[in-house]
Design a protein around this nucleic acid. Structure first.
Length: 198
DNA sequence: GCAATGATTTACT
DNA sequence: GTAAATCATTGCC
């Protein structure tokens, strides 16, 4: 069942990031659904340097993060990869959760077509740039609300105990200084679908 | 107006 | 292991 607004609009972004592990992320394009189980997330908050909205600095790109929780924040990184975030917290509080990896379960064939050349099946959605391509997300999706029409997150009834969740520092934000060591990355223990460098 | 760079992925030496 | 691909956004001139 689809997650309610109240799930996203809480104030503890790290807690939300942890609870998103085991939930389902889906998109529907031209009547075809693709998606899977979230196995890796990272939390971002305006209070720390790793975040685009650090210091509550509002720009054209990150404006959507200042909207209420439940919107999507999609942007282009390194000139070629779209990264998908879920906006959390209340209006004018810029927090978000980056979805870094999912375990594909629906529309796998279509996702393979979208990804093109594929080394092996575990590379299908095991990374933030990979899963957006597999799900057909690009920056035009920025600002969409996760209302179940084109994109949504479901509670699949899985109960992930905290012992199955690995917590650690976030990846690829060395420029953030001390904030780069915050233990705000969450992964499902032992999942083969978690992102890893090459 | 313009130069610098990144919440990454992939291919090659 | 290292490097190239590639461009919107940003911050400074």
């Amino acid at each position: 069942m689809k997650l309610e607004e109240s799930f996203y609009q809480r104030t503890n972004v790290a807690k939300i990031a942890r609870e998103l592990i085991g939930k389902g992320l889906f998109t529907q394009i031209n009547g075809v659904t693709t998606g899977g189980i979230i196995v890796e997330t990272e939390a971002y908050s305006w209070k720390e340097r790793g975040c685009h909205a650090y210091g509550a600095r509002k720009t054209t790109r990150n404006a959507i993060m200042f909207e209420k929780g439940g919107h999507s924040y999609v942007y282009l990184c390194y000139g070629m990869h779209h990264l998908f975030n879920v906006v959390t917290n209340n209006t004018n509080v810029a927090d978000a959760v980056l979805i870094r990896a999912i375990e594909p379960i629906v529309g796998v064939d279509l996702m393979k077509v979208r990804r093109g050349s594929l080394l092996n099946e575990f590379h299908l959605t095991s990374g933030p740039g990979k899963l957006t391509k597999a799900l057909g997300i690009d920056r035009k999706w920025n600002g969409k609300y996760l209302d179940g029409n084109e994109i949504w997150i479901e509670d699949l009834g899985k109960n992930i105990s905290t012992t199955r969740i690995v917590r650690g520092p976030r990846i690829g934000i060395d420029y953030a200084g001390d904030d780069a060591s915050l233990p705000w990355r969450f992964t499902l223990r032992g999942s083969p679908w978690i992102s890893k460098h090459t």
